[in-house]
Computed example of a mutant assay.
Amino acid sequence: MLFPVATMLGPMECIGFESTFQETADIPSGQVQTFSHEDLSPAQAVTSLIGPVMWPKSIDVRVNSIQVEQQIHDFNLKSLYTINRYWEMGSCPHIFFLGQETILPEYYGELFAKQPGESHQEIIIIPSGIDTVLIVELEPEQTIIEEISINKSLYRTMVRLNQGDALSIPVKSGDLIDLKGHYISKSTAATDPWFRNALVHGFILEGAGLKSHSIQS
């Protein structure tokens, strides 16, 4: 049973951690789920919590007519259980926003974050103050953007991004961006979710994230 108590905002820096237990299984969605016990205490200084919304102290469970009480320990990064779900190959490209008043790129999220090799559609409404959308490939894979439409008008087709490439799209507040495409992984290994955070963090801080990337427009 899972009881949502709080939300942990994981570290963006590359933080070393120790896994003391790990169990991996296939799940009905086609993804792989990894359940692990980790010592994430080195990230104490760069980890934040939203919550807790409640402070459970114990759980009463009835098993075969016998009531059992299980104590719950306080939140402790040194003893952290994590559940990570991913497709067995690669990750996906990332979207960032730029604006005249933004000092660093603003992270919007992942693009085509479903099964690799299958075409998906993403629709983005551009918020106030944003004049550029960046689609960035940070990992060893290829992103294929089949169609890009802005306010239902076709903008570009068949854009290919390899690791280190980025696509810059000029936009204005309120624009409706329609993206269709997929990604193809060049690796059979899943990306560690903490390492993925570090990649995004590095892109943002690396001279506004643009110096080492090939930018298309």
Rank of each mutant, 00 (worst) to 15 (best):
Gly117Tyr: 02
Ile150Leu: 14
Gly30Lys: 01
Asn151Trp: 13
Leu77Tyr: 01
Glu38Ile: 13
Ile103Tyr: 09
Gly30Asn: 05
Asp192Ser: 05
Tyr183Met: 09
Thr47His: 09
Ser185Pro: 06
Glu118Ala: 14
Glu147Cys: 08
Ile126Asp: 14
Lys57Val: 14
Ser153Met: 10
Leu138Gly: 01
His120Pro: 01
Leu199Asp: 03
Ile125Asp: 11
Ile135Pro: 04
Ile66Val: 11
Thr157Trp: 08
Leu77Ile: 02
Pro193Ala: 01
Lys186Ile: 04
Ser58Gly: 09
Thr34Gln: 07
Met12Glu: 09
Val32Cys: 02
Ala198Glu: 03
Asp26Met: 03
Glu13Asn: 14
Lys211Ile: 12
Lys78Pro: 02
Glu18Cys: 09
Thr7Gly: 08
Leu134Lys: 02
Asn76Gln: 09
Gln163Thr: 15
Ser79Ala: 06
Phe112Thr: 06
Gln115Thr: 05
Met158Thr: 12
Glu147Pro: 00
Arg156Pro: 07
Ser128Asn: 12
Gly117His: 03
His120Lys: 14
Arg160Ala: 15
Ile95Tyr: 02
Asp165Gly: 05
Gln33Tyr: 00
Gln67Glu: 13
Thr143Glu: 07
Thr132Gln: 14
Gln121Arg: 10
Cys14Val: 09
Ser19Trp: 02
Arg62Val: 15
Ile150Pro: 09
Ser19Pro: 02
Thr20Cys: 04
Pro105Phe: 03
Ile150Lys: 11
Ile169Gly: 08
Ala208Phe: 10
Ser187Cys: 10
Ala45Gly: 01
Ser153Trp: 05
Pro193Asn: 02
Gly129His: 08
Leu98Met: 15
Leu205Thr: 13
Glu147Trp: 03
Ile66Gln: 14
Asp178Pro: 04
Asp60Met: 11
Glu106Thr: 13
Met12Asp: 07
His73Lys: 14
Phe3Gln: 08
Leu138Arg: 00
Leu154Met: 15
Ala25Phe: 05
Leu111His: 10
Val63Trp: 09
Thr7Ser: 11
Pro140His: 12
Tyr108Gly: 00
Gln22Lys: 12
Glu106Gly: 09
Val171Cys: 12
Glu88Ser: 06
Ile184Gly: 02
Pro28Glu: 07
Leu9Ser: 08
Gly90Pro: 11
Ser41Cys: 07
Gln67Pro: 02
Ser65Glu: 13
Ile50Arg: 08
Ala208Val: 11
Ile135Ala: 05
Gly30Gln: 06
Ile126Arg: 15
Met12Cys: 11
Ile148Asn: 00
Pro193Arg: 03
Ser168Val: 04
Ile95Cys: 06
Gln71Arg: 11
Ile50Asn: 08
Ile144Thr: 14
Ala166Lys: 04
Glu69Gly: 08
Tyr108Ala: 12
Gln115Trp: 00
Val200Phe: 09
Ile135His: 02
Leu199Val: 03
Glu147Ala: 09
Leu2Arg: 09
Tyr86Thr: 01
Lys186Phe: 14
Val5Thr: 12
Ile124Leu: 12
Phe97His: 08
Ala45Pro: 00
Arg62Asn: 07
Leu98Trp: 05
Leu134Gly: 00
